[in-house]
């Protein structure tokens, strides 16, 4: 193996180059939005901006964040809050449930797990779900982002698989010491579950942050809307009227709807991109637990 590495290998050069190119293609579109956002609006309107920005102006971010009509700040705040609380509730509920379902003392665990799996595989669909949730008072109620999705069956399985993999003797030993089952959970299992908690936590967080359909159906009041909905209204809706994103001039630069749309996109994806380097290892481990053991 080492011998190969020393040689100049044509295959490897080509292979590395192509793969790096693919990596660039994967990531470039995100950069492209940044370039569009900071380019001078006049060049954009004239169709003169291609791969790289033309003119640079960072005012656009300040402008879209401070323009209350665009609702971007509001959407970001809501998304943050729903993600924060949704993740806490999701992780706690999922972990506790997975723990109880991983205990052999709980005789009904197979039945309960089976029911979870059944409702996971057999989708009721949007409409029946809507009818139930609306009767429970979740329409125009921000809790819809936090409570109904508190247990994702897939993550429950991942968590349960992990807990079942831990030696049962841990519980026995603690029980002999006089601990009750709650203390076993908090003192014995919780400290060694940090990685799995981080994994499902990041899954929940990304999942809630990225949700579009649920808020679109349930959260109609503008004060509850999340950034993904705001983004759709600003970028994809054909009837956004021109007044909300009218061209303005700042310091000799034109800011037009193209700048503002791109800036909105950049702002909406920024949190994920910023935390991605730190959490990607949890995702990888989660995927591997989920797929290999399942």
């Amino acid at each position: 193996m080492m011998k190969h590495k020393k040689k100049i290998d044509l295959f490897e050069i080509i292979n590395d180059t192509i793969l790096i190119l693919i990596a660039v293609i994967c990531v470039y579109p995100f950069l492209y939005e940044v370039f569009i956002a900071i380019s001078d609006g006049r060049y954009l309107a004239a169709g003169q901006v291609t791969f790289f920005p033309k003119g640079t102006n960072l005012e656009v971010f300040k402008y879209v964040l401070n323009n209350p009509k665009l609702n971007i700040t509001l959407g970001m705040r809501n998304s943050f809050l729903y993600t924060l609380f949704g993740t806490i509730v999701g992780v706690v509920t999922t972990y506790i449930t997975a723990y109880a379902l991983s205990r052999p003392q709980v005789k009904s665990r197979f039945l309960i797990m089976g029911l979870f799996t059944l409702t996971w595989v057999f989708e009721a669909g949007l409409i029946p779900t809507y009818i139930i949730l609306s009767k429970l008072g979740y329409v125009d109620n921000p809790l819809v982002m936090i409570i109904p999705g508190a247990i994702n069956t897939q993550y429950l399985i991942i968590c349960k698989t992990y807990l079942e993999g831990l030696p049962y003797e841990l519980e026995d030993a603690a029980m002999v010491d006089g601990a009750n089952q709650f203390q076993v959970l908090t003192n014995v299992y919780l400290p060694i579950s940090k990685s799995i908690l981080a994994t499902i936590g990041t899954f929940y967080a990304v999942g809630i942050w990225n949700q579009y359909l649920t808020p679109q159906i349930y959260l109609k009041k503008s004060e509850y809307k999340v950034i993904q909905q705001i983004l759709r209204t600003l970028v994809l809706s054909s009837s956004t009227d021109g007044e909300t994103m009218q061209t303005i001039n700042i310091n000799g630069f034109a800011l037009n709807q193209y700048n503002m749309k791109a800036a909105a996109i950049v702002i909406a994806m920024a949190p994920i991109i910023l935390v991605y380097p730190f959490v990607q290892k949890y995702f990888k481990s989660g995927i591997l637990i989920g797929s290999v053991k399942g």
């Binding site: 509920t93 506790i96 449930t97 723990y99 109880a100 379902l101 205990r103 003392q105 709980v106 309960i112 029911l115 979870f116 409702t119 996971w120 057999f122 009721a124 669909g125 409409i127 029946p128 779900t129 009818i131 139930i132 949730l133 429970l136 409570i147 109904p148 999705g149 508190a150 247990i151 009750n180 089952q181 709650f182 959970l185």
Partner: peptide, 25 residues
């Protein structure tokens, strides 16, 4: 094992209300 069953309550609520409720609807 009452403590374990208490731990199951939130999960069962989610199961009944949000997973089986829609199937019933």
């Amino acid at each position: 094992n009452y403590l374990l069953y208490i731990m199951l309550i939130p999960g069962l609520l989610v199961l009944v209300l949000f997973k089986f409720g829609p199937v019933g609807a």
